[in-house]
């Protein structure tokens, strides 16, 4: 009985020490200060029958104040969409701005960024899963703590406050010692557990920025799995804001 109270007091102290928002801010800080970044991404799309198709992407991002980051994603395969590019100006306070370059038509098309819940390239990752994490797009609540994968973790409930999210809430495990995200569980708008994200291979870069080398998203309802592998990641490469516009979107990224 005494132990029970001790645990309650200990847990209460911890919960009082750090709020969900503060933990989220510290977790967010582990992802920042990269200045700019280039990375090659391989995406494995595995259906319920374990058939796998592969997608390759090239991504470059520049860090800007207030998380108003700019990014370009260029699709390298399948061959019929090679060269298609997506330019995003992230807006923490509202909707991002996005343009799609269609090389066959030589056309830069403004697209709606309302499509938060849509599948990115037919994968189990939604656009809102891969867009940059901006703190103000969620409300945070520290709901519990537990050992996950041998690590002492905070469990935060993140509730999207932006429109058109596909999620009612997201439950996220953060390692207490590093504030790195290890796992997320996504509950859909019908209040059913939809997906589980696990992140592995965290590496610290010279700037102090942490990045996972693998993200695995499992859809519990469809049985499909999508895995993102990040290769050849470089930071502080000298990219500038002028490299992120509709003109550069039309050129082959190097």
């Amino acid at each position: 009985m005494n132990n029970f109270f001790l645990i309650l007091i200990f847990a209460g102290t911890l919960l009082a020490n750090e709020t969900g928002r503060e933990i989220a801010e510290k977790a967010n800080a582990t992802q920042r200060n990269f200045i700019d970044e280039k990375v090659e991404t391989t995406m494995y799309l595995i259906n319920a029958n374990k058939d796998t198709v592969t997608r390759n992407l090239r991504n470059m991002t520049i860090e800007r104040p207030n998380s108003e980051d700019y990014s370009i994603i260029q699709f390298l395969n399948p061959a019929d969409v090679r060269g298609t590019g997506l330019l995003t100006y992230q807006n923490p306070a509202g909707d991002d701005k996005q343009w799609l370059y269609l090389p066959e038509l030589r056309r830069v098309k403004k697209i709606s960024s309302k499509n938060k819940s849509g599948a990115f390239m037919g994968s189990e990752f939604a656009y809102e899963d891969i867009s940059g994490n901006t703190l103000d797009k969620f409300e945070y609540e520290l709901v519990s703590e537990e050992i996950y994968d041998g690590k002492d973790c905070y469990i935060l409930q993140r509730t999207p406050v932006y429109e058109n999210s596909g999620y009612l809430r997201i439950k996220t495990w953060y390692a207490k010692d590093s504030y790195l995200m290890l796992r997320s569980e996504y509950t859909d708008r019908k209040n059913s557990l939809l997906k589980v994200l696990t992140l592995k291979g965290w590496e610290k870069y010279p700037s102090g920025t942490w990045r996972a080398s693998e993200m695995r998203m499992q859809n519990l309802q469809s049985g499909k799995v999508s895995i993102l592998h990040f290769n050849d990641r470089q930071m502080k490469t000298g990219l500038q804001v002028k490299d992120f516009n509709k003109r550069s979107l039309q050129r082959i990224l190097k």
Partner: peptide, 12 residues
């Protein structure tokens, strides 16, 4: 104007 996941999940 696009309706996302209007009739079937993920279909626009």
């Amino acid at each position: 104007y696009t309706f996302y996941s209007a009739l079937i999940e993920n279909h626009d």
